[in-house]
Design a protein around this nucleic acid. Structure first.
Lengths: 159, 159
DNA sequence: TGCTATCTATCTAGCGATAGGTAGACGCCT
DNA sequence: AGGCGTCTACCTATCGCTAGATAGATAGCA
């Protein structure tokens, strides 16, 4: 799943294969099929784990006394700068219309829970949407222009 | 190129094929290769045309007396709601790390010219980054959640 | 005007590579 | 003994791309 996550975050759903992630881990593709019968199932599992971990990380930031928006910004920031990759659900979501419903639902879940988390912390719904959009978009921009500092600059106005 | 643009905007770079777009148009894939020797070349040509048209549309909005930020917002809005698809450079940019340099440079061009356009209209660089990121991210969010109205709600704060 | 040569845009056929996925055998551990 | 995990070997389908050929339009020249 780690290998799949890396590959998906770099190249999207149709940009990774069983053979590639098997080779990354040092096994054969048939072994991956043993654990995840289909590609869709694997991608959905990876997306679910990603979302859960992401929300946990936000909670951890909040526990450290961070403001809610700054907490989200920090988690996105780390995802971009530590991993050097896109947000998994951003990478998958860009081709949302082409995903199987199983995977698409997991990607939706990331965004829905994100909006939910931000509103429950006191933000208006439109503000929650704006924060999530700005973070996701800033990550994309920094990724395209290969300059991580653009994330900080593009999201400075949120803080 | 129209067919290729549609497919790329729905499924990204690795989500379209010569055979598919040939079938869309009613020819054979070999005929597409006649005009575009490689897939990279085709994608790069489509991205360039998309960027040029996009900037023209922004200029047209400005000529109509629109505020610069509102002009950008409107063009994104139309791209999402009329076409029902992602921004082409957003869809490609999400997998930027996996694109050939030829295509990646065209995607970069979209973002660089966007920032340039916004700053030359008077915005600070960080504000330009923020606007572009928010628009691109709002489009992604609306796309994933299959609700175009979320674009308006998520970008209302920009106006 | 008519012949010749070239160009354009398409076709059929097929290349090698890779995709997702499956069947059955093998070894290992309890 | 039996299940778990991995393997080899294979399948069908599709990928990007190319070869060779062809019909029709175009252009230059006698």
């Amino acid at each position: 799943m780690d290998a799949a996550e890396e590959r998906i975050r770099r190249a999207g759903y149709s940009g990774f294969s069983f053979r590639e992630i098997a080779a990354d881990v040092g096994v054969k593709s048939a072994s991956v099929h043993y654990h995840f019968p289909t590609k869709e199932r694997l991608a959905a599992a990876v997306a679910r784990r990603y979302t859960d971990r992401f929300l946990e990380a936000v909670d951890h930031q909040l526990a450290g006394g961070e403001d809610i928006v700054e907490a989200w910004r920090q988690v996105f920031r780390v995802a971009l700068q530590r991993d050097g990759r896109m947000c998994l659900c951003g990478a998958l979501g860009a081709t949302s219309q082409d995903l199987s419903s199983e995977v698409r639902e997991e990607v939706k879940r990331f965004f829905l829970l994100g909006i939910d988390n931000l509103t429950k912390a006191g933000l208006a719904r439109n503000s929650a949407l704006h924060v999530l959009a700005a973070l996701e978009g800033a990550m994309l921009t920094a990724n395209v222009l290969e300059d991580p500092s653009l994330f900080d600059k593009g999201t400075a106005a949120l803080a």
